[in-house]
Amino acid sequence: MSSTPSVARIMTQVLVALLPGMAAHVWLFGPGILFSVVLCASFGLLFEAAILKARNYPLRPFLGDGTTLVTAALLALTLPTLLPWWLYAVGMLFATVVGKQLYGGLGQNTFNPAMLGFAVLIVSFPAQINVWPAPATLAAYSLSLSDTFEMIFTGAHLKIDAYSAATPLDSLKAHLRSGHDAASLIGTQLIPNLQARDLVALSYLLGGLYLMARHIITWHIPVAFLGGIALTSGALYLIDPSHQAGPFFHLIVGGTLLGAFFIATDPVSAANTPIGKLIYAGLAGLITVMIRSFGSFPDGIAFAILLMNSAAPLIDAYMQPKVFGHNRRHLPGDKS
């Protein structure tokens, strides 16, 4: 790289890389995602402006750096698209104000802001959050633009079962609990709309490869995260194939690819040393599969990444690359 790109330019690239994912989302699940991204972004900018004013910081350079837009897009993509508007507001309040500004602003935040907002929502409003729209091809009732608008702003629940569907992770968990066999579930109607979600997942992969090609992210975190997920779910599958879904399922469902390329790679909250990145992301993948397989929440990516965020500074401290000319590794606490 010739020069260090500014935060705003990096964030623009990230937003560009998210476009294929959003396009696939619109194509398969309807225009709801556009509403939720715009809502999250507006609330995010509003809260950010308010807290910057309270902290006596200038608005323009901090609002204009695009980080709030990326946070908003990531939060919107991880949430269902047809929630009442105030849930997006609460999520963005925690993401920007608590997750970022209270820690001292961009660069000081220990935790990924979007995942913090998501975790607050999933812990606080489990009932409201679990309304995932079905892919347009499967839904019995397709929502028009005005329906979407009405759902978000008045909270009217039109024909909730006609447009919502369990996510693959949800229905896998439910069917396993009722005594079904994992192997017989995957690829059948019992796990609905896996194919539609494949396409969204693959478009995130496309965006992620674009980010790598532009040197915005390195290969370490995505590869280690996906590797962690594949190894852990593979090992579980070998031990108990009738209750575990296997690596391919885990790689494609939920937010795996979005998490691997866009969320775990957040340069502020992730580990920054090469070996540190591998450890950080690999363990995040392991925890993700553990939560999916044994926890009570349907997806564990947010919790796994937040947990590893808190460990990232420690990992970095022990994984500093050797400085040329020194033959002794410096550990924190060493004098000299």
């Binding site: 609460v90 608590v98 607050v120 812990v123 606080s124 409003f125 489990p126 409201q128």
Partner: peptide, 15 residues
């Protein structure tokens, strides 16, 4: 009020 579970749970005390 739909309830805001986080405030009742331990993290709410820390916040």
């Amino acid at each position: 009020y739909p309830g805001f579970l986080l405030a009742i749970l331990p993290p709410g005390a820390f916040f």
